[in-house]
């Protein structure tokens, strides 16, 4: 427990800031199609929010938010969402990741837009889980965490 972690100001500010950082991360992921942003950027921001929380409140508290098993499940879920999107396109008669082939909406460009959003969500889930897992991996077991490596 270092002096920074005991500071009331920092603990309170972090507790207030973390939800807003997570909200901003979701905004960045969902606006990947129409503005600056995307799955990678938003995933890293979301991971940074959890890492910030863990740096101040300690590894044990951080693992309550994001346990190791949840981490592993999320990392593989994101990749599966992406690959499944590609396979759906094959099932609907197109090529792998040919979004226009899916007959959900009359306008193929619209379908493509929503499937790109889905793919970005998959990327974001994988990236946030991997970032948090990297942080937990390099931090020592029960002392205070090292600095983030990302």
């Amino acid at each position: 427990m270092s002096r920074i972690q005991e500071s009331v100001i920092i603990r309170t500010i972090v507790r207030i800031m973390v939800p807003f950082i997570e909200l901003f991360a979701l905004y960045v992921i969902m606006h990947g199609a129409s503005g600056p942003g995307g799955g990678f950027q938003g995933g890293v921001i979301f991971g940074a929010a959890i890492i910030l929380y863990t740096m101040i409140y300690g590894i044990a508290e951080g693992k309550k938010k994001m346990s190791d098993s949840l981490d592993r499940i999320l990392a593989s879920t994101g990749l599966t969402i992406y690959a499944a999107t590609g396979l759906i396109c094959i099932v609907c008669g197109g090529m792998f990741l040919q979004y226009r082939a899916v007959p959900l909406l009359p306008d193929p460009a619209e379908v493509s837009k929503y499937l790109i959003d889905l793919v970005e969500i998959g990327i974001g889930i994988t990236v946030l889980a991997v970032m948090i897992s990297l942080f937990f991996d390099v931090s020592p077991p029960e002392s205070e965490p090292e600095e983030a490596e990302e």
Binding site: P36, G38, A75, L79, L97, D107, A109, K113, E120
Partner: peptide, 27 residues
């Protein structure tokens, strides 16, 4: 591809297979 961000269109649509590999790399 229906998205206004050209970089996203390139990343997720034209080069979607490459981005799948990229996600696999980070995983």
């Amino acid at each position: 591809s229906g998205v206004t961000n050209i970089v996203t269109a390139l990343l997720a649509s034209y080069r979607g297979y490459d981005t799948l590999g990229e996600t696999a790399v980070i995983f």
